[in-house]
Amino acid sequence: MTGSRATDTSGTQPGSQAGGQAGGQAGGGEARNEFWLEQLFIDRVIIANDNRSVGMVDDIELSVEDEPRIVAFLCGPLAFGARLRDRLGLWWASIGHRMRLTSDDQPVRIPVSLLAVLDHRGAWLSVSSDEAGPQRLHDWLEENVVGRLPGSKKKT
């Protein structure tokens, strides 16, 4: 979560519940309402209703309100690069940036409105992987490499 969007947005909300997610601390939970975002969401796999993985939760996006709500999960190389920090993180994110079709530098966004169930195994969406948004690396490899091989549409 370090230097992440979620921290930036929630940082404008002093005392918000989401403010207590600083990494590494044990979840002692002095205040009853306090929860640890990293334990709840980060590094959960996001699975569409066709059982295909869409990504891993690298970050979350909060709304700017008095009581911020989680509005989206962020994933992909831009969100992962931000977590790696240092030069490696910059390098990672810039590769992700170059692979983007558009020039904006926003990570892949999965709105929480698509979420059906959240459990210890992952975040389960109510839509298919196609409806969850484009996955550039997957789509490119599917179209240009694996999709061209005979038998790529058949299960074994």
Partner: peptide, 20 residues
């Protein structure tokens, strides 16, 4: 690790990164 679809239980094109 990267949260891609993996495994032979999927048709190969669905797990494109895994097969590559």
């Amino acid at each position: 690790f990267f949260g891609w679809t993996w495994g032979k239980m999927h048709e190969p094109r669905a797990a494109a990164q895994f097969h590559v």
